[in-house]
Simulated scan of single mutants.
Amino acid sequence: MYSKIEDLSIELWLEIFTYLKIRHQFNTFLNLNKRLNQILLSYQPHITLKNNDEDTQYILKYVSPYLIHRENVTGLRLENTNKVDLINNEKLLYFPRVATLFLHRLHITKDFLNLFQQNSTYLRYLNISSIVSGDKIMMHQLLEIILSLSNLQTLHLGLRMSMSPIQLRISSKSPIKNLKLIGLNENFFIDRLIILLQYLPYLQSLHIITNQINFISTKNTDNISCTNSISSFTLNIHEFIVSFVQFTNFILRIIPYVQELKIICRSPVQNFDYLNHREWIMFIQSLPNLKKITLDISRSNDIDEQIWNKKCQMLIKLMIKNHIILQIVK
C-alpha cells in the first residue's frame, strides 16, 4: 500500500513535534500541505517565550497571529521576557485556556499583571519558584490575584512573595490544595504564614524550603486559629537553630491534623534535641492523625555515633508502638 509521510496520524505528528522547537516545526513543515498546516496551527499545546530571542520573535511574528484554536494552548512558560513589548503584543499573548503556567525571572509590572490576569482564568498549576523582581506593591497585587483564582490547585511560589506582612484585600477563599514555598536563602515568618493560610482552607499539602524559621509573633496573629486541613507537611531547612519544643509548638498550632510529616535538615545537627524520646512522646500524643514521619537529618562529627544510633532505635520502637511509620534517612 502506497503512503506518504504527510498521511501520518495526528497523534504521530504531535509526537514528532515534541522533539522540535516551534520555529523548526513551522520552518520545516508549514505549507507542505493543507492538512499539516491545520495540525501546526491547531495543536500547539505548549508555548515557551524566553527573553526576546530568535524563537520568541518567530513565535510572535509567524505563529501566534495565525493560531486557529488559541484555546488549545494549555501550557505557557514565560522566562525573562522583560524585553518583550507586552502592550503591543497583548493579543498575541492571549491564550484563554492555559492550565499550566511557569513564570521565571520576570519583573512584575502593571502590564505584566494585566497579561497574567487575562491568561489565568483556567489555571490549575502555577510555578513562580525562581526569583521574581518587582516593588512590594506589585508583588502584593500579584499574590492577591493568585489567591483569587477559582481553579488553581497547585502553586509553587517564591517564599519571599508569599510572606506578605499585611492582610490581603480579597474576600474569597483559594481552592489551592498543594502549596510549595521556595526560599533556600530566605527565612519564613510564622505570623506571615498564618496570614497566608487564612485564605487556603482547602490546603492539603504544604512544602516549605527555607533558610530558617522566624518565630516572632504579632498581636494581629496571636488570636488567629488555622482552619485548614493540611495532611502532608514537609520542612526543608538549612539548619535547626530553634529547639524541638519550638518546632513542635509550631506544628501543633499551624498543622494540627497532619498525617505525613517530613523534616529535612540540609546541615548536620549539632545535638540530640530532635531525637529526644520524651519530647517525641508528648508530640505524637498531640497529633491523633499522624501516620508517617520521615527524618532526613545527619549528625555532626561532634556527636557520638553509637549514642545517635541508639536514640534512633528508641524512636523507631516508639513509633512502632504507636502505629506510626518512621523513616530515618542518614
Rank of each mutant, 00 (worst) to 15 (best):
residue 4 K to P: 00
residue 5 I to F: 05
residue 5 I to T: 15
residue 9 S to I: 04
residue 10 I to M: 01
residue 11 E to L: 01
residue 11 E to F: 13
residue 12 L to E: 00
residue 14 L to T: 03
residue 15 E to F: 15
residue 16 I to R: 04
residue 16 I to G: 05
residue 19 Y to K: 07
residue 20 L to M: 07
residue 21 K to H: 06
residue 23 R to P: 10
residue 23 R to S: 15
residue 28 T to D: 03
residue 33 N to I: 00
residue 33 N to C: 01
residue 35 R to P: 04
residue 39 I to E: 07
residue 42 S to C: 15
residue 44 Q to F: 03
residue 45 P to H: 10
residue 47 I to C: 02
residue 50 K to Q: 02
residue 55 D to S: 03
residue 56 T to N: 06
residue 58 Y to G: 15
residue 62 Y to F: 11
residue 63 V to F: 04
residue 65 P to Y: 05
residue 66 Y to P: 10
residue 68 I to R: 08
residue 69 H to R: 09
residue 69 H to A: 02
residue 76 L to C: 09
residue 76 L to Q: 04
residue 81 T to C: 05
residue 83 K to V: 04
residue 84 V to E: 12
residue 88 N to F: 13
residue 88 N to G: 09
residue 90 E to V: 12
residue 90 E to G: 00
residue 92 L to R: 11
residue 93 L to I: 02
residue 95 F to I: 06
residue 98 V to Y: 03
residue 99 A to R: 10
residue 102 F to V: 12
residue 105 R to T: 14
residue 105 R to H: 09
residue 110 K to M: 07
residue 112 F to Y: 13
residue 116 F to K: 00
residue 120 S to R: 12
residue 126 L to V: 07
residue 128 I to V: 08
residue 128 I to G: 06
residue 130 S to P: 10
residue 132 V to T: 11
residue 133 S to W: 07
residue 133 S to N: 09
residue 134 G to S: 14
residue 136 K to C: 05
residue 146 I to E: 04
residue 147 L to W: 08
residue 147 L to P: 07
residue 151 N to V: 11
residue 151 N to E: 02
residue 155 L to A: 03
residue 156 H to G: 00
residue 158 G to W: 12
residue 158 G to Y: 15
residue 160 R to P: 00
residue 161 M to H: 05
residue 162 S to N: 14
residue 163 M to L: 13
residue 164 S to H: 15
residue 166 I to E: 07
residue 168 L to D: 03
residue 170 I to T: 01
residue 177 K to H: 02
residue 181 L to M: 15
residue 184 L to Y: 04
residue 186 E to I: 12
residue 187 N to H: 06
residue 187 N to P: 00
residue 192 R to M: 08
residue 193 L to D: 15
residue 194 I to D: 10
residue 197 L to F: 10
residue 198 Q to R: 11
residue 198 Q to K: 10
residue 204 Q to N: 02
residue 205 S to F: 14
residue 207 H to R: 09
residue 210 T to Q: 08
residue 213 I to W: 13
residue 213 I to E: 13
residue 215 F to N: 08
residue 215 F to I: 13
residue 216 I to F: 11
residue 217 S to M: 11
residue 219 K to R: 07
residue 220 N to R: 10
residue 221 T to N: 05
residue 224 I to P: 01
residue 228 N to R: 09
residue 230 I to G: 12
residue 231 S to Q: 03
residue 232 S to N: 01
residue 232 S to T: 14
residue 235 L to M: 06
residue 236 N to W: 06
residue 239 E to Q: 05
residue 241 I to K: 10
residue 241 I to W: 08
residue 242 V to G: 01
residue 245 V to S: 11
residue 246 Q to R: 01
residue 247 F to H: 04
residue 249 N to K: 14
residue 253 R to C: 02
residue 255 I to V: 14
residue 255 I to D: 09
residue 257 Y to Q: 03
residue 258 V to M: 03
residue 260 E to M: 14
residue 260 E to H: 12
residue 263 I to E: 03
residue 265 C to D: 02
residue 265 C to A: 14
residue 266 R to E: 08
residue 270 Q to C: 13
residue 277 H to P: 08
residue 277 H to C: 04
residue 278 R to H: 06
residue 278 R to T: 15
residue 279 E to A: 05
residue 283 F to Q: 10
residue 287 L to S: 00
residue 288 P to T: 12
residue 290 L to F: 09
residue 297 I to H: 03
residue 299 R to V: 01
residue 300 S to K: 15
residue 301 N to F: 08
residue 303 I to F: 09
residue 303 I to L: 07
residue 304 D to W: 01
residue 312 C to I: 09
residue 312 C to M: 11
residue 316 I to H: 11
residue 316 I to W: 11
residue 318 L to W: 07
residue 330 K to T: 13
